[in-house]
Amino acid sequence: MKKYLYFVFFMATLLYIIFTSTDDEQDNIILQATTSTDNSGFFSYILPLFEQDTSIRVDVVAVGTGQAIKNAKNGDGDLLLVHEKELEEQFVADGYGSKRFDLMFNDFILIGPVDDPANVGDADNIYKAFEKIYEKRARFLSRGDNSGTHIKELKIWNEVEVYNPSIDQEWYFESGSGMGATLNMSVQDSAYTLCDRSTWISFKNKSNHTILLADRINLINNYGIVLLNEEKYPKLNHNGAKKLAEWLLSKKGQKAIEGFKVNNQQMFFTQ
C-alpha cells in the first residue's frame, strides 16, 4: 500500500510541476519577428522600455520573414514584425492581417572578403556590383530560405537580367539558413553575401570580411509591423498587440528606436 502512496505522490508532484510551467498571464503577447532584429539585440534593448510603460510581457519568436508570416497565418503570433513590404501587404490583402505600418528602416549591404576579387567596391550601385560578381563568377552565398533578405537578393538578380540564379552554378550557393549562419559560412568560404546592416554590425565573427558596397537608394530595408485580423483570429491578444504597435509607432517609441546603437552605430532609422 505504501508503495502506491509514494507513486501517487510522485505523479501528483510531476503533474504540479508540469502545469505550473505555463504561465497563465493573459497579458503576454507573442511577437513573430525576423532574426535580423533579434540577433542585433534590438529586442532586449527596446522591450524592457515598453514593459516599463505597460507591464505587458513580450515573447519574441525570432525566425526568417517567410517563416514568421507562415506562423502568423497559423495564428501562432499576436503581432508580426518583418521586413518584406510586398509580402506584408499581401498578408493584409489576403485577410490575415488587418493593418500594416512602416516601423523603421535601415539598408542592406554587400559584404565580401577584403581583397574583393570581383572588385565590387568600385561599382556605382548594387546592380553593377552583382553584374561584376556574375562576370567574375565570384563565389556568392545566398540565404535561400525565403527570408526578406533572400527575396530582396532575388529581386536584384532579376534586375541584372544577365543572370537568374539557380543552384546548378558553380559559384552561386544557397545556405538555406538564417542570416547569422549564412554569414558564418560566407566568412569561411570567402564569398559575397547580401546582408542587412543590423545583423552585420552586431555580428562578431567578421574575420576578413567587410562592407564592400552600400547603396542607400536601391537597398533600403523597410521593417513593417502588422496587426492581425481580429475576426479571423478571435483568440489572439489583439489588445496587447495594439498597445505594442502603438507604443513603437509613438514619438517615444520611435525615439527609442533611433537611440539603439551597437558599436556606436545607429542600427535603425525612423521616418
Binding site: T35, D38, N39, A62, G178, M179, G180, A181, L183, N184, S202, F203, K204, N205, K206
Partner: peptide, 10 residues
C-alpha cells in the same frame, strides 16, 4: 544556436 547565429562563437 542563436549565439552562433550572432557570430558570437566564443
Amino acid at each position: 544556436a542563436s549565439e552562433t547565429a550572432k557570430g558570437d562563437l566564443a
